[in-house]
């Protein structure tokens, strides 16, 4: 692990999980149209670990991620990043929290077409008015293998390259936790595998914490731990899984859903 030795890892408060939900509920609508997206979910995301959240469509996996990341409000319960409780924060405080403590990777890349790759990567720092730490920036850029394409605009990059820019952007501010929402959903299998490799590496070698929502068992199998969600509840979890194990669990869900 030479890289970890060379560059300080992000963890600012080593004690406790990077993020935690307790009795987290999210309810949309009321009366007839009431939908319970999350039903009193409690879960911890350990520091320096790569966690995958899996579940069928409508299971609430994306909602859980959005609530944990401060993108959506919580109906009941608590969501914390580090020791910080998210419910009760104002929009500005949430924005600041996302800027300083959270990294995002989206399914459809979400890069600003007017900025170069490098400018896109350093955007969170620019928003915070901070100067990038050159060594850390080089490390991140090297990790995702973009050194040669920093001056390109998104339109001149392939899908895989664009998503690598997005990963680098998520890592550049050394967030406490990185949320990835179906990061391989729009990529061919080779590019997808590459991205998963970078996420894996950022956890193992740079000491980041990554939470990834996916419905791809192969992708989930690259995580340290897989949390299964169905109907807004956590139903199961696996540690250091093999793809077959994940697939097997998913099949069981489907069967359960059909009989139940």
């Amino acid at each position: 692990m030479p890289m970890q030795a060379a560059v300080s890892a992000p963890g600012r408060s080593p004690a406790g999980p990077a993020a935690r939900a307790e009795g987290l509920s999210k309810i949309y609508g009321a009366g007839e149209t009431r939908v319970v997206a999350l039903d009193s979910v409690s879960v911890e995301f350990a520091r320096g670990r790569f966690t995958a959240i899996m579940g069928p469509s409508g299971s609430g996996k994306s909602t859980l991620m959005h609530c944990m990341a401060g993108l959506d409000t919580v109906s009941a319960g608590s969501a914390r990043i580090g020791e910080r409780e998210l419910s009760g924060l104002t929009d500005r405080q949430l924005t600041r929290l996302r800027r300083d403590s959270v990294g995002f990777v989206f399914q459809s890349f979400h890069l600003l077409p007017t900025l170069t790759a490098l400018e896109n990567i350093t955007l969170p720092l620019a928003l915070a008015g901070r100067r990038p730490d050159e060594r850390w920036l080089e490390t991140v850029v090297a990790t995702v293998g973009l050194s040669a394409r920093l001056r390109h605009r998104p339109a001149q990059l392939s899908g895989g390259q664009q998503q690598r820019v997005a990963v680098a952007r998520a890592l550049v501010s050394r967030p406490e936790i990185v949320f990835a929402d179906e990061p391989t959903g729009n990529l061919d299998s080779r590019s997808g595998s590459e991205i998963l490799g970078f996420l894996r590496e950022s956890v193992r070698e740079l000491g980041h914490t990554v939470v990834m929502v996916t419905h791809d068992p192969v992708a989930a199998a690259r995580a340290d731990r897989v949390v299964f969600l169905a109907d807004g509840r956590i139903t199961d979890e696996l540690h250091a899984p093999a793809p077959e194990d994940v697939l097997e669990r998913m099949r069981r869900f489907d069967a359960g859903a059909r009989t139940g």
Partner: peptide, 16 residues
């Protein structure tokens, strides 16, 4: 809209 959403997500506040 998407770009504004992204900027907001990664830390540009409403004032920005």
């Amino acid at each position: 809209t998407r770009e504004v959403g992204l900027l907001r997500a990664i830390g540009l506040d409403d004032k920005g």
